[in-house]
Amino acid sequence: MSAAPLLEVKDLRVEFPTRRGTLVAVDGISFSIAPGEVLGVVGESGAGKSLTGMAIIGLLEPPGRIAAGEIRLEGERIDHLPADRMRRIRGRRIGAIFQDPLTSLNPLYTVGEQLVETILTHLEVGHDEARRRALRLLAEVGIPAPEARIDQYPHQFSGGMRQRVVIALALCAEPRLIVADEPTTALDVSIQAQIITLLKHLAREHGTAVMLITHDMGVIAETADRVAVMYAGRLAELGPVREVLQRPRHPYTVGLMGSIPKLGAVKRHARLVQIDGAMPRLNAIPAGCAFNPRCPQRFARCTAERPEPLQVGDTRTACWLYADGPR
């Protein structure tokens, strides 16, 4: 990577103490995102991808906590910051977009009021300038006739338009990093494509780093520059999106890609590649490689020793198959 990373996450560990023991939900994750880059974080439900995002924006729900590792934004450590300092960073330097656009907007205020207030909170501008900026943002996220819509309430917007407003809200303070957690999951397919295109365009235009969390490989393929595949709280594979999707190395990624029905190959009742079993629960993660009980290529070392991410070409793969160089 040529540019200095905007976000750097090192050995992040998120724990949930419960009365039956401590659950490790995110276990030793490291990655970085450069300005203008979209990093896709993909994984099945419970893989820890959303918690990683929450840890970065400092919104982990107690009793969840960052137990180890560090998070750096433009070189500055932002894990374990006091709540009020983190609040200032969130919104100003980190924008967040969540799955459900309805819960991200206050139903009692107009879209314009919410945008203007956010701008005034974070930027040194007057009210008129803030409103001009709000209008410009709405236009930029593709809301037709922003002058007419800025004084409407969230419920007067459709689902796709609401998500655009949420994106505008996240962009208000011109953040350096946007954490988008399943931003298209609640939307219909045709709207998904619109939002994906928008996100990608904005990242390029403003040089904003985007951490795009999703379970949908299709969204990753369309949007991300690099992709991190998570499994049971750990990083399975991390690399350029084309590399990971077309030449997956980790057996989990291989299975994941194979299990997606492909459009080009309409073969009636052709069996899909399937990964047997299910991802382990957090209280029953197997010893060694977390994926080993489901892995078709398991061997002795996999059950005994936990693999660390190994550099294989442009990707990092946490799999013992690559311990002696690429196969």
Binding site: E44, H215, M217, L256, I260, P261, H269, R271, I275
Partner: peptide, 13 residues
């Protein structure tokens, strides 16, 4: 999830 979806689709077939 997709990997489980594949299991169910195969089972249904």
């Amino acid at each position: 999830d997709v990997s489980v979806q594949a299991q169910i689709l195969n089972l249904m077939a």
